[in-house]
Design a binder for these strands. Structure first.
Lengths: 276, 276
DNA sequence: TATACGGCATCCACTGGATGGAAGCACGCA
DNA sequence: TGCGTGCTTCCATCCAGTGGATGCCGTATA
């Protein structure tokens, strides 16, 4: 038999998504074969779908024959969560200017801290996270803040699952973590010491929104001068306050386009359309 | 007849892409009906496809029932053109710190200037462009730089098409534009005065890469203090030089994942995978 | 030089998933 | 109560999508 034996229960859509998902965890260009393997699709099918995606600019070929995400996809995706990013960026920049340390902003997306923005200097430190990247909530300072100040059920649900260990320093005991989060709530800030990556520590504070937690901002500093990270707290809290003030007028759900409640009648965004 | 009358010659892929493309020019959440209209698809088909995309996190529902791009899509798309963005960001920041004016970085994507990054302060000026957005090459300072320093055929091809006018100040005469670009090449910088949006002017310089044009960096300033934008040229050129130095070791094609030549043996990216 | 191999592109007969008109539902408004 | 709008569900039809087979190209091996 020639063809037609399509694996049942698999929609074309899911195949396209699987192809895109192949690029979720890598910055490299991938070969057709790699994509096919990652998406669990026959080569010929992959070939055709990838071809269409390239045609549309969602993927693009690199000069050496590899396949990468396309600029068009990036360009479209930039319209996601713009409200928060655009509003917050100057504040994250300020945070960097005032501290000289890598500054970042993260929100909760499922069980991960999703890094929305980060600002750093030319002298690169070993990066543990990147914009658009995710890290487990219990291993990062921003994550701990998010866990500590989220609704109780979020934390409870999170602690159900086993806590992944990224370095020898990661805290993986649920009981101990619960205590630590208690501390975070009491102190209004969280720290991590080499729990994500050896050589870097971090500190973060919550940014509130209408009483609830909105997001978290923090710093990543090399362990070498992390002995007194707490000295940055006044700046962190100051920026957090200003960011809160800048976002109060925007409904929390609108900030990210994520459903976290069942509110109604959220006003749509305004401003100039269609012009980039 | 019930169903099955699918418009022939339309692949599922193209339909999904049309749905995503509906969000290309708007930041608003769209209704199902709006998406269907934009993608030119029957409502029921749109409904099912959108449902699948939401399921996968590529789209998401807003609390008031609208549909928006999903965080997962954004997160995946962040892996596009990372090389240039990550490398250039500190320099764009520096540019902002040193000038206090909105700083931006753009490349050519087809016939548009594609804004890769921008840094601005809290006191917002009327935005004419945004990260991920496009503007015609002839109306912006970065665009003029890109046109002026690209290969000759790029400029020639661009001038074939009619030049869109964004404001009354836009230069739309091909002959005059050609002269202007000559000037840009001679001066090594370009300016625009209210050609994109009334109230803002801009200035930009080229960033070279192995002899060719790599990208362009520039400033946007309110017309009110745009009388002597040229005073920023030393800083602009200084930053451009430093950015050039920081990118020489990366092949131009790799910087963006765009094919601009037919080179071979581009080394793939390195560094830690899989960890955000 | 010959041979083997891995990766990529193309082909095509078959079929099951995609399709879209229509009907049903939910809500808001007069 | 009745109408209008927008969303959801249903299902008989059928064509777009499928994937095994084949062939090609460049590189590594004998």
């Amino acid at each position: 038999m020639a063809g037609g034996t399509s694996q049942p229960g698999r929609s074309v859509t899911s195949k396209i998504l699987a192809i895109l998902a192949a690029f979720e965890t890598t910055r490299r260009a991938l070969s057709l074969t790699e994509i096919a393997a990652s998406a669990n699709l026959p080569l010929s099918t992959t070939h055709r779908l990838v071809g269409e995606l390239i045609e549309a600019g969602m993927l693009s070929r690199t000069p050496n024959g590899g396949i990468q995400l396309g600029l068009r996809l990036w360009s479209i995706a930039q319209n996601t969560g713009r409200q928060l990013r655009d509003t917050a960026r100057p504040f994250v920049q300020d945070l960097f200017s005032l501290t000289g340390e890598t500054s970042q902003l993260a929100i909760r997306d499922g069980n991960s801290a999703l890094y929305i923005d980060r600002v750093y200097g030319t002298k690169r430190i070993a990066r543990a996270s990147r914009v658009g990247g995710r890290l487990p909530l219990h291993a990062t300072a921003v994550g701990k803040v998010i866990l500590a100040f989220s609704e109780a059920w979020v934390m409870d649900a999170y602690l159900e699952h086993p806590l992944e260990s990224l370095t020898a320093q990661s805290h993986t005991s649920p009981i101990q973590l619960r205590k630590e989060l208690e501390q975070v709530r009491a102190n209004n800030f969280a720290v991590t010491r080499e729990e994500v990556r050896l050589g870097t520590c971090s500190i973060a504070v919550p940014v509130y929104h209408t009483g609830r937690l909105g997001c978290s901002i923090g710093l990543v500093v090399p362990s070498s001068h992390a002995s007194n990270m707490e000295r940055h707290l006044p700046v962190l809290n100051g920026i957090a306050k200003r960011l809160e003030a800048a976002t109060v007028h925007i409904p929390l759900e609108t900030l990210l386009g994520v459903i976290t409640g069942k509110d109604k009648n959220i006003p749509d965004l305004d401003e100039d359309e269609d012009r980039p």
